[in-house]
Amino acid sequence: MSAIPISWYLVLSAILFGLGVVAFVFKRNIITIFMSIELMLNAVNLAFVAFARARGALDGLVFVFFVIVVAAAEAAVGLAIVIMLAQHRESLNVERVNLLKL
C-alpha cells in the first residue's frame, strides 16, 4: 500500500524545519516569531512519526505526544507574555523590545 521511502518524509521534515528557521530569523512580529517555533516543532514531529514507522515501534509516537503537550504549555505562557508586552510597549515589533525591563 505505502511504498513511500521514509527518506521522503525526512526530507520534507528538514525543509519545513529550515523554513521555520528562516521565518524565525526574518519575521519581526513577536506572534509570528512564536508561530515559526511551532512550525519547527511540527517538522520535528513529522520526523518522529516517520522514524517510529521505520523502526516499527511506537516510542516515536509517544514523543510526539510529549512535544504537543509542551507546545500547548508553551503557547499558554508565551501568549500571556505577548499580551503583557503589547500592553506595556504598545507594539508587537521585537526590535522595540530592547530594554531589560517592561
Binding site: L10, V11, A14
Partner: peptide, 17 residues
Amino acid sequence: IAHFLAHSSIGTAIATG
C-alpha cells in the same frame, strides 16, 4: 541535512505493512 538523511541506513528503509 537532506543529504545525510537520504543516505543514512534508516532513510532508505521503506514503510511497510
